[in-house]
């Protein structure tokens, strides 16, 4: 429970912490994007030949 008189304490990031966080965020974003592309491409590779066979 927060006491009425107690002011919440916030963390203020230093410049190096902000830079590090930004670098981690970009890396996570790129990795997730790569994962999406990998699964998208692999799905096409695996399913398109089967679709052709089905049509023919």
């Amino acid at each position: 429970m927060m006491m009425a008189a107690e002011k919440p304490e916030f963390v203020t990031l230093t410049e190096s912490q902000k830079r590090a966080r930004r670098s981690r965020s970009i890396a996570i974003g790129l990795a997730l994007a790569a994962l999406v592309v990998i699964f998208y491409v692999a799905t096409i590779i695996k399913f398109v030949p089967a679709l052709y066979q089905h049509v023919m």
Binding site: E9, V11, L13, T14, R19, A20, R21, S23, R24, I26
Partner: peptide, 16 residues
Amino acid sequence: TRMEDAAFRMSEATAG
């Protein structure tokens, strides 16, 4: 409301 806990350590680890 307090941030002394070690779990609140702000990381300076980069993607590198």
